[in-house]
Every structure is written in C-alpha cells, then in structure tokens.
Design a protein around this nucleic acid. Sequence first.
DNA 1: TAGAGGTTCCT
DNA 2: GGAACCTCT
Length: 768
Amino acid sequence: MSGGGGGGCSIVWFRRDLRVEDNPALAAGVRAGAVVAVFIWAPEEEGTYHPGRVSRWWLKHSLAHLDSSLRSLGTCLITKRSSDSLSSLLQVVKQTGATQLFFNHLYGYVVVISLIVLFRLIIVFCDLALLNVLNFKKSNEDNFAFILCQFTVFPDPLSLVRDHRAKELLTAQGVAVRSFNADLLYEPWDVNDAQGHPFTTFAAFWERCLSMSYDPDAPLLPPKRIISGDVSRCPSDTLVFEDELEKGSNALLARAWSPGWSNADKALTTFINGPLIEYSKNRRKADSATTSLLSPHLHFGEVSVRKVFHLVRIKQVSWANEGNKAGDESVNLFLKSIGLREYSRYLSFNHPYSHERPLLGHLKFFPWVVDEGYFKAWRQGRTGYPLVDAGMRELWATGWLHDRIRVVVSSFFVKVLQLPWRWGMKYFWDTLLDADLESDALGWQYISGTLPDGREFDRIDNPQFEGYKFDPNGEYVRRWLPELSRLPTEWIHHPWNAPESVLQAAGIELGSNYPLPIVGIDAAKVRLQEALSEMWQLEAASRAAIENGTEEGLGESFESVPIAFPEDIQMEENHEPARNNPAATTRSYEDQMVPSMTSSMVRVEEEESSLDLRNAAEDGRAEVPRNVNVNINQEPRRDTLNQGVLQTVHNNNTLPQFNVTTGLANAEDSTAESSSTSRRERDGGEVPVWSPTTSSYSEQLVSDENGIGTSSSYLQRHPQSHQIINWRRLSQTGYFLKYWTDYQAKTSVKHMYMTQTGSSEAGGCNDA
DNA sequence: TAGAGGTTCCT
DNA sequence: GGAACCTCT
C-alpha cells in the first residue's frame, strides 16, 4: 500500500460529513498529500428513502458551502451524479490517478429497492441462488461486475456492509482505503453490557456511554491548507436538487435556515451561549426557539457530534463549578437527545432492519386502519385537534418540528387514527429538513410500542391535555392555526367543547372553517382495544398454527398483508387512489410543497403570514373532504379482509409471501369503489420482504427464554400471547439478517474498522 | 419514619 | 398507565 503524498493523490469521499472541521477522513487525506474531494449524488440507491424536497434543498446549499470552504483552502468539491456510487468512485480513481481513498463511516440503513413486489418474488425464488452468490463472494473472488450487480439489487442491511464492499473493490484495484468514525461518540461495537452483549434499552446504553473509561475523541481543527489533486480530467457533474415547481417553496426555507458547516458552527455556539442553560426549564414548550435547531446540521454532518459533546461538556463543567444546578441538568437533558441520536445508529447497527421491521413480532398482526382520508387530514393539519394540526402545519410550512410535537402528532397518527406507522414515517421523511432514517425509525418505533423500552401501544395520549402541557397559553396553536387565533385559551385545545357564543365571537364555525375532531378520543380508545384484541387473537392463531406444524412460514413473514407506502398511494386528492394503481411509480411532490412560511420562521408580520398560511391551506392543496371532518366517533367500516387474513393464518401456506401479494390485490379490489372507504389490514407499510422462508424464526420466537420485553406492565397485561423477538436471535434469523451476522463474524467488520480507524493506526495501513 | 398522596416523566 | 420521585403527616 502506498502511503504519504509522494505518489498519487487521495480521494476524500464526502457523504454525511459535509464539513472541513473535525473531519477525520479529510484530515487523513490532507496528511497524505494531494486531495481530491468528491461528493456522489446517487439518490436512487436510497430506494424508497431517497431524500425529500426539503432534504435536497439543504443538501444543495450545504454542498455549495463546502465547496466554497474547500476552495478557500486550496481545492474544490468534485460532484458526480450517479445511479451507482461505487462505479462513480472508480471512475474518479481512474480520472485522477488516486492511490488512496478516505471516508467516514455511516452506520445506517441502505435500502436499494424500488420494485418491492418484484423483490418479494426474487426473495422467494432466489434464496438459494443468493446464498450461492454470497458464497461466491466470500471466496474473495474479485469480480467487479458481480459486486456491482449485488450492490444495485441487494438490499444492504447496513451502510457498513456497503462501505466494506467499496473497500474490497477499490483495494482490488490497488487503492488503499481507510475509513473513520466521524459520526458517533463511540463505535457501536464498543458499547456493550457486562456480558459483552449489545444493549437493548436506551437508558442502559446511554449510561454506559457516559461512563466509558475513555472520552470520545477530541474534535480536530480544520486543515490550514489543502493541496489539490489533479482534477483536470475529472469534471464535476451539475447536480439538480430541485425542479422548477419546488423552487418557489424552497426559496422560503432560506429565510429561516442557513445550511453549511460554518453556519452549523454558529448555531452551536449560539445555542450553547443561549438557550442551553434553560433547556431543561423550557423542555415542555412547543416553541422551537428553546431548542438547539442543530438536527439538520447534524444529519448532514455539518457539525461533528463530538464537537457538540465536548463544547457542551465544557460548559457543564464550568456551570458545575459555579454551582449552577439548572445548567447542569439542562446539559444532561440535551446530551440525552444527542444520546438518542447515537442510540439510533446503535440500533441500526445491531438490528439492521428496524426501519422496516417492527422489533417486536406481535405488531405485524395489528389491523391498521388504511384510510387515505385520515391520512390526508393528518398531513394537512385538519384533524380537529388543535395541537396536532398546529404541528402538522408547522411541519408542512417549515420542514421542522419540536421533538415534543413530533411525539404528539406521530402518537396521534398511530394510536388515534391507527394509520400504518410506516406511512407517517415516510411522510416525515419527505417533509423534515432533518429527516434521518435512523432517528426517525427509532422515533416511530418508540411511538408504535415496538421498542423494548418504548411506550405501550394501548396507551393513548389525549391531544387536549398534551396541548395544555406543551402550549399552556395556546400561542403555538394560534401561530399555526390562524382560524383559531381569536379563541380564548380556555378553549384553544378543545374548541369542540366551547359554547356556541364563544365560537361565534371567535369567528369559528366548526366543521366549516375548522374541523370537528376527526375521531373522538373515547371512540379511538375503544377502537384501539378492539384492534389490539384482534392483534393478539391473530398472533395466537398464528402461533397455534406454527405449533401444529401447519403454518411454517407466516410467523416469519413480518409483513403478511402489505400496505403500500404513501408515495405509492398518490397523495393528491384529484388522482385516483393508488390502491387502484399500486404499480404506479410516479411520485407526487404536492404534499411536500411549502405554501408559506409563517411568523415563527421568518419573523414577519403575524397577520400577513397568517393569511399566507390560510391561503396555502386552502389553495396549495386540495381540501380535505368535509365528511372526513365530521364523522366524529364513526367507526371505520370494516370489510371482509380480516376474515381473509384469519383464513390465511390457518391455511397451510408454504409461500406466505404470495398471500401477501394476493392480500394486496384483494384489498385493492375491495376498496376501489371509494377513496373515503376505510379498511383495516394487518400490518402497515409496504415492506420489502427480506423475511426468510425458513422456519427457524418462529420457533425461536416461541422458545426464546431470553427475550426482552416491552415495559413489564404491558407484558403482564398480555402474558397470553406476547412473544417477543430476542434481539440477538433476531439478528441471527432471517436470511438477510443471517447474512449480516455471518458477515460480521466472518469478515470481522469490527476488526476491519478498528484497524482502519485513525485511533488505532498502528493496526492499519500507515500514513507516513 | 413509614406510608399516603401528589407530581413528573416516559426513546 | 405506572414507576420513580417528591412532600407531607
């Protein structure tokens, strides 16, 4: 391996580390000599989770900022448009004569799937073939075409695996590759319990992180100067991050946000010297001004989490010396949110499929309400619950939401509306500036009760009470729901209880200019209990079938009846619902359009912005059908699908995935007549099937004595059927999961990365 | 001081 | 909804 700067240049591959400060890969490149900085834009590789409009807007500006910083240091950012990062990387190697590649780790999910149904079939029929393929690969065969093929068709459990393939491929081409941890305080494999096992609850995980025997690496300074590699034969592609339709909406984002690493740095300083000290006191406020607003910067790696950690800890020490208890508490609380981000990566490392697959087995039997009217009302902030609606309007308008409000709106989504959680996650993904697959998956699974330490599913938070908790004076609601702006605080979070005279005085006509509650909370509670009973019943039936040996596969198929992702269900009201056209691949961006910024973001006159918002709500999107707003307490109509599902459970099916497909077709037929028809299905979200066809999974579920639980109370209430997936077992079950475990064991991913990282350079290739 | 009762927080 | 933490008697 060539070291030092004497030979060819180094490529520094930027991904989600768009900064020059505390960037170990860049620092290594600079140490090694001449540098070619590269960013490859390959959104297709992200499959369903390719970046939404607001994320793309951020990326565009962040890259421009990075390029400008690199230019001032002596080089520039080469950008490439690609459908395949690896081949683009190889191309850059050839064009620049690079002999080294440096990049920083990603730990997240990589999903390379677009034709999900097709993929199901591939899995069913090609299991063995893929196994052979893997063996082939493991034999160290250096076959570029094969790896590329695998790369584009195969859903990687982890970015680490993808990166490892890049490393293998480039090493075979004579390029020395090194990667670094730049995204986490501690590598996921370094944080284990006393037995050396990964933690399965956040509190224990974070406690361990904070008591590690060594501190996270101190942040690196930016390079003083960068010697540019020869890029004369390596032209940049022009990257297009927004179309004409999106530009108008995006222009408004710039009034509130400043992407770019040095702006991130400013935001960090501002926060530490300002809101941080009152972070604990203000944590119950829905107001964004009390938060760090760092999340989009962190997502794109514009600021290093280690720098955040160090600066905040320094502040904590100084406050501790002053005896400032509130400051100390605030820091702990803020660091906890940093810890949650760490934990999301930790989970995705240890449990690669948690963005698609509930970690607890029972939820796959939950009969989700598949109602596009509900979904639309939620998206548009027209559910009739002011706090929820205000949150959804803020999200829609600004691409951002306070963490508390995220919990409120997503909890409402799952528990009250009982819409498939993956729909909501996908919508967040498309609309949040800080959309982050790992964090969002953690959040939604927490809400959906699928984490061992998450909320119980059978608990419904009442948005009215939450409203008075997080927005006691109604300011937040009034800011985002101008139609309620004149309603007294007493009624602001439950206008449906307000006397007619009060409503009249406030200019509110419920069901007309503001909806009645879309679902009554009491009705939702009843409905949720029914749904849970049904879930346990189905789960028990499935288990019985498995024990009888009549049903081998279903227990493993976590997605028995798929529900299309919302992007597949076209969101516009003026289109036929996509259930009539599930294969439609056209994407609707309408729901991502930002109609207006409002006062909280742009600090313009309240009245003007309110008008904007109102206009936007009425013009920018199709109206929510009136009937959606007035059917309070109305039970969504059930169709016969569930009977079919039950039959499916009892039937002897050797290919459960086909049931899946059939179930989808049936569902489409049964609901084709009306877009406002409600129906229930057993699970949420169209999920690519990497569920195995082997039978070991279910047995492990049943027989596992080491299973981890949800909160014990919940378990106690459902001892009869609560089978919990053991996470260690989970990671060993299923074809792909098995693949990952094998991968970890046989290629020693951990060892590989440890020996590559700068912190243990003696074990890796030398830098000279 | 044990225990009742209230409050807070929950990834 | 309930564990964990308080305050009060």
